[in-house]
Each structure stands twice: as structure tokens, then as C-alpha cells.
């Protein structure tokens, strides 16, 4: 396959940045999207140019490191797929592919396609956990948990923290990410003790960091590589109302 690429290049956080056109040739349709960029980078290095910087690590769709806005979609056009699991056979020969970094005020661009997502860590640090210190915990089977709730908690916990929800949302809202964590613990008896405090703190932090407001467009759910449901956002809203009223 031969492809034309339009890639966002920005040397540093303060650099203005611009799109640069590249061409790659003879790409196997079995190659992954990141392998295609690897090939481009090899050519750039051979030419003495600076390779395209991008985040990636596990390359099996679970670490949440990869983050590219490809042809108008976070992680590209294929549903329920991270960039690293996207393969070139999903593109047409000769196609022009536009590749941009995640865009959101709390996710500043560091270089090219790398953005700083530490805002997500700050939200989790605020209250995104159950405060159980090591040791002294009861037997794992001491509290039975309804299978349905355990399954729903797992659905929410599948979030990989990649930020595609923020990237997709026209408001750059982090509600899907935050609600997934709030939901996971709200559904488990162990998480109920701190539930009210948790939702208030995490929402306040999310607002403080400059994420936008949710307007229920549900773009996040459509683009989430792990298909996290917007019912988690509703659950967080319920939790929030409950916490504020009582």
C-alpha cells in the first residue's frame, strides 16, 4: 500500500506546530498502524530528520499509552480498537491519513503526537481508590457480591485511561473516565464506605483541571476502545446527587 500522511509536528510544548505531509510506500496491509509509523520513522532517521514522536508501549491494546487522532477519530475509525491494534488493511491504497494529537486544554502537547495525560493521574490521586492499607483485610469471600454487580464493576474497570473519551468529546469532557472509576467502586460493597466523598472530590478535581462539561453527546462511548458505557455517567450523576443531598 502507498499512503499519504498529514502529521502534526510540534517540537516542544511552546512551539507553534504545523502539519507536515509525508508519503510511505509498499506498506503491508497486515502491518499495524504503529508499525507503519515505525517504517516512516526509519526513513526519516535515514534522511537525518527528526522521527515522529508518539506514545506507545504494550502494543496489544491494554496499557492505554497509544493516543493518536486518526482521520477524525481517536484511535482511528475502527470501533473498539486502540491505535496499536489498528491494522493497515482498514485503509485504502493511496488514501490520505490525517494524524493529530489528542486535543484538550488539560492534555497539553509535549511533542508531535505525545500529550501529557497526568491530569488523569491527578483525578485518581484525589479519591479514585478504596483506602485499604496492606494487611488486615478480611477473607476475600467474607462479603458476597452479586454477580451482576461484579460484572458491571468489571465493565467499568476495563477503562485503560487512554483519554480517547476526552479526545472525542466536543467539550473535552472527562466524564466517561471519571464515571468509570466512580461506578466501579459504587457497585462494590467495599467501595460504598467512601462513595460520597469520592464522587465529590473526583468531580471537583476534574472541573479544576479544566475538562469541559458533559453535554450527553455520547461520542465518548462510541469512541472508547474498551466500550465503556455512558450508563456509568448516569450512575455517577446519581451518586453525585445523592452525595450532595446527604
Amino acid at each position: 500500500m502507498d499512503l499519504k500522511l498529514k502529521i502534526w509536528r510540534q517540537a516542544s510544548p511552546t512551539d507553534k506546530g504545523k502539519f507536515v505531509d509525508y508519503e510511505v510506500h509498499n506498506i503491508s496491509s497486515d502491518a499495524s498502524f504503529l508499525e507503519m509509523i515505525d517504517i516512516l520513522n526509519d526513513e526519516l532517521i535515514a534522511k537525518g530528520e527528526r522521527p515522529v514522536a508518539f506514545d506507545h508501549d504494550c502494543r496489544e491494546g491494554i496499557c492505554g499509552m497509544c493516543s493518536m487522532f486518526i482521520n477524525g477519530h481517536p484511535h482511528g475509525p475502527e470501533a473498539a480498537t486502540t491505535t496499536c491494534q489498528l491494522h493497515m488493511r482498514k485503509f485504502k491504497d493511496g488514501e490520505t491519513i490525517v494524524i493529530e494529537p489528542w486535543r484538550a486544554k488539560p492534555f497539553p502537547v509535549i511533542r508531535d503526537l505525545i500529550v501529557d495525560r497526568s491530569a488523569f493521574d491527578l483525578i485518581i490521586q484525589e479519591a479514585g481508590y478504596i483506602s485499604a492499607s496492606t494487611g488486615g483485610t478480611p477473607d476475600a469471600n467474607a462479603i458476597p457480591i452479586k454477580k451482576e454487580n461484579a460484572d458491571l464493576a468489571m465493565d467499568a474497570a476495563a477503562c485503560i485511561g487512554c483519554g480517547a473519551c476526552v479526545a472525542a468529546c466536543k467539550n473535552a469532557s472527562a466524564m466517561l473516565f471519571v464515571s468509570a472509576k466512580v461506578s466501579q467502586f459504587a457497585l462494590l460493597p467495599q467501595g460504598k464506605v467512601e462513595a460520597k466523598d469520592r464522587v465529590k472530590k473526583m468531580v471537583a478535581k476534574m472541573d479544576e483541571l479544566g475538562f469541559g462539561n458533559c453535554t450527553n453527546t455520547y461520542a465518548c462511548e462510541a469512541e472508547c476502545p474498551k466500550e465503556i458505557s455512558i450508563t456509568n455517567i448516569a450512575r455517577m450523576n446519581r451518586q453525585f446527587i445523592g452525595a450532595k443531598l446527604g
Partner: peptide
């Protein structure tokens, strides 16, 4: 065994049977 206890207390959503046990 302590590991499983610890993780359940942290809210790790392990698979469960219909009876609610792990």
C-alpha cells in the same frame, strides 16, 4: 491467600459465581 484478600478489599472486580462468591 493474603493477596486475594487484599485485592478484593481494594475493589478488584474478580469473577464471581451467582452466589456472590469468588
Amino acid at each position: 491467600n493474603n493477596i486475594i484478600d487484599q485485592c478484593v478489599a481494594q475493589g478488584v472486580p474478580f469473577a464471581r459465581e451467582y452466589g456472590g462468591y469468588l
